[in-house]
């Protein structure tokens, strides 16, 4: 039952991604779609941490920015090819996440939120201050992504790459959740002490998920840098971290497809809301509050339970 739902979900996602471009009249639509998909990949990773392991992070934009700057600096200053640069950055971010994750994941709830927030902000400050390497607050240029003589140009090409990446990420995430690791994680979320009593090494599982989600963020950060061609330290700001968390929670915690939906909605909203002009912030804040008040479990779980109810009634 669970298996078929999973395959069905993946197939549905792939179909939607394949058909969506039929509704895209120009490159701008592709650009927005790519950004939505990038955010979705980060959120699927972050959801493993927030939704399944029950640990919050208000610093993931920092890892995203490190991936972006890692790629930017390695490719432009040290002339490393984009793919190895991306992998080196991701490995470094993974190591960093491991080193900071071990002590801070012992913290709970709001204290963990504070610690991750602090790490994100420290990364942001370093990127802003070390102007000789990073170009400072005004940012730096990044070369396009190329692999074996083939250069990624244009939003259409990026769309297919991002779509492929998302399907892969979702597949990985679903498999991870369904593995013994996933079950251990859910045990950690349910009751950490309880999980420990029955022999789950909770802290190492928590650190592992933290590292995995940070690496996802870093990889997407690298791709984003190559795609936009210009980055500033603000991509690692506190607001971006909060934005990622909001996407995960809005779509539905502990729901991989929910994270995708949350990311897509929150990326599209500012584009849709341009017509309200000065009232944009009010409408955006209002939508966030309303959704969380009326759908406290998030959008997708609410839809699914509605669906189930209808089905049961029949």
């Amino acid at each position: 039952m669970w298996k078929t739902a999973r395959i069905g979900g993946l197939a549905a996602l792939a179909t939607i991604l394949a058909l969506a471009p039929l509704g895209f009249p120009n490159a701008y639509f592709y650009d927005v779609a790519v950004k939505a998909l990038f955010n979705a990949v980060v959120c699927v990773g972050l959801n493993l941490l927030i939704g399944y392991a029950g640990q919050i992070s208000l610093g993931h934009a920092g890892f995203f920015a490190l991936g972006a700057y890692g790629s930017a600096i390695l490719t432009s200053t040290y002339k490393v090819a984009p793919l190895p640069a991306m992998l080196i950055s991701a490995a470094a971010v993974g190591l960093l996440a491991y080193l900071v994750g071990r002590p801070i994941l012992k913290l709970k709830g709001h204290y963990l939120a504070m610690a991750t927030l602090g790490i994100g902000i420290i990364i942001h400050i370093v990127l802003k201050t070390e102007a000789r390497i990073t170009g400072g607050p005004d940012g730096m240029s990044v070369d396009p992504f190329s692999l074996m003589g083939f250069t990624m140009m244009g939003d259409r090409m990026w769309y297919w790459a991002a779509a492929g990446l998302l399907v892969l990420t979702v597949w990985l995430s679903l498999n991870l959740i369904d593995s013994p690791v996933g079950r251990a994680l859910r045990a950690v979320h349910g009751s950490e002490v309880g999980a420990e009593v029955v022999g789950v090494d909770t802290s190492s599982y928590k650190v592992m998920v933290f590292v995995v989600s940070a690496v996802f963020a870093s990889l997407v950060g690298s791709l984003f840098a190559h795609k936009d061609g210009f980055i500033t330290p603000d991509i690692g700001s506190f607001f971006r971290s909060v934005e990622f968390v909001v996407m995960v929670v809005l779509g539905g915690m502990a729901s991989t497809f929910g994270s995708v939906i949350g990311a897509v909605i929150l990326t599209l909203l500012p584009q849709v809301l341009t017509f309200v002009e000065d009232y944009e912030a009010m409408v955006l804040g209002g939508i966030m509050m309303g959704m969380m008040i009326f759908l406290p479990k998030g959008l997708l779980p609410a839809v699914v339970s509605q669906f189930r109810k209808r089905g049961a009634a029949r």
Partner: peptide, 26 residues
């Protein structure tokens, strides 16, 4: 939303902060 998850309530207050900033600028 009193009986919701802590994270849900946090997001509500973040939404409220965005809303209030938007209100203040208008």
């Amino acid at each position: 939303a009193r009986n919701s998850d802590v994270v849900t309530i946090i997001i509500i207050t973040i939404g409220a902060s965005i809303f209030l900033r938007g209100l203040a600028q208008v």
